[in-house]
Design a protein around this nucleic acid. Structure first.
Lengths: 170, 170
DNA sequence: CCTAGATCGTCAGTATACTGTCAATCAACA
DNA sequence: TGTTGATTGACAGTATACTGACGATCTAGG
C-alpha cells in the first residue's frame, strides 16, 4: 500500500488528535461536575482530596499528592482552601517536625456524605451519551491507558506506597 | 437481581470515576506533549491556536475561541504570548473597530512546520500502550462522547459557524 | 557526634481555565 | 435618528497545574 502523503497543516487534524480530545473531555467533565455540585462549593480536586483524607486519616500532604496523583505544589493551596472552609484540619506530627497530618473535620465528613449523590449523578452524566456497552469499553480502555502511562506524568499514582506510613503491613 | 449496597466512601471509587480518569489522562497527555516539543517553547494550547490561525487567516479572537473550543478570557493571554514570541500579529479590522484580526508571521508559519513531527510523535506516544485495534476503539468512542457532550461545556465547539465571517458559503 | 543527602512544606513564576464585569462599538428597530 | 440590545476585547478574581528553588528537618554513614 502506498503511504499516505503528509497531512496538510489544518485544524481538522487537531480535532482528531488524542491530546485535543482528552483536553476537551476533561473540560466537559469539570463543567458537568460543577453544575451538579454547585450547591456544595467543592471543586473536583477538592472532592478527591477530601475522599483521600477520609480513606487515609492522618496522611501528610506529600503522600496525599501521591495517592491522588496531584502536583505537590498545587496541593498546598488546595489544602489551604479546604482548611479555610473548615473541612479539614492539620496537626503537627510529634515524631517529625516537617510533617503536618491531615484529618477531616465533622463539617468535612458531613459535606462528603451529602455530596456523594451529586458526584455520582455527574459521573453518570459524562458517559450518558454512550450506550452501556460502549461506556464499559471506554472506561476499560481508559483505565488501562492511564495505568500503562502512569510513569509518563510528573506525579505518578502511588496508591500503595502511600499507605506504608500508616503502619499497614506491606 | 439485588441492587448493590451504596459504595463506601473511599478513594478506590475515585480511581474508577470517569472524571478522575479524564483529568489524569489530560495531565499525562500534556506531559508527553511538552516532553516531545520541549525544543520549541510551545504549549498544546498555543499550538492549537497557531494551527487554527493558519487554517483561518484573519480570524478574530472570539471566533478563534469557538473554533478550538477554548475560553475567550483565557485566549486573550494566549494570544498575547504568541504575539510576544512574534508568531502572530494582530491587525485592526477596517470595517469593525472592535475586532483585531489574527495572522501568522513568517516565524509562526516556520515553527508550525518544524514542530509537526514532534507533535505527531507525542500524539502517537499517548496511545502507544494500547493495541492498534484498541486505539481505534478508544478514539472512536472519545470523538463520539466529546461531540455528543459538546453543549455541556462552557465553550462548545463551533467549527463551521466560525468560517462564515471569512465569506465562505454557508 | 557530625556531615551529606534526602524529604517536607512552601514559595515565586508561568500557563491554562472559568465567572463575572466593563467600556467601546456595532446592528437593529421604533 | 436615537436608543436598545448584542458583540468584542479587556480585566479582576479564583482555581488548577507545572518548574524550580529554598530553609527546616530528618536519616545514614563515617
Amino acid at each position: 500500500m502506498p503511504s499516505k502523503p503528509p497531512a496538510p497543516i489544518t485544524i481538522d487534524a487537531v480535532y482528531a488528535a488524542p491530546g485535543y480530545l482528552f483536553r476537551r473531555m476533561q473540560q466537559i467533565a469539570v463543567s458537568i461536575f460543577m453544575e451538579e455540585c454547585k450547591a456544595f462549593d467543592l471543586t473536583p480536586v477538592q472532592y478527591a482530596a477530601l475522599i483521600a483524607i477520609h480513606t487515609h486519616p492522618g496522611i501528610d500532604a506529600t503522600r496525599l499528592s501521591a495517592v491522588i496523583a496531584f502536583d505537590r505544589s498545587t496541593l498546598g493551596s488546595v489544602i489551604e482552601r479546604l482548611q479555610a472552609k473548615d473541612y479539614i484540619e492539620r496537626k503537627p506530627a510529634p515524631e517529625d517536625k516537617r510533617i503536618k497530618l491531615l484529618y477531616l473535620t465533622k463539617s468535612g465528613a458531613a459535606i462528603l456524605r451529602e455530596i456523594i449523590p451529586a458526584v455520582e449523578r455527574a459521573q453518570a452524566r459524562m458517559l450518558e451519551p454512550l450506550k452501556p456497552t460502549e461506556r464499559k469499553t471506554l472506561m476499560g480502555l481508559l483505565v488501562q491507558l492511564v495505568d500503562l502511562n502512569n510513569e509518563a506524568s510528573r506525579v505518578p499514582l502511588r496508591a500503595e506506597d502511600a499507605l506504608e506510613h500508616l503502619g499497614k503491613a506491606g
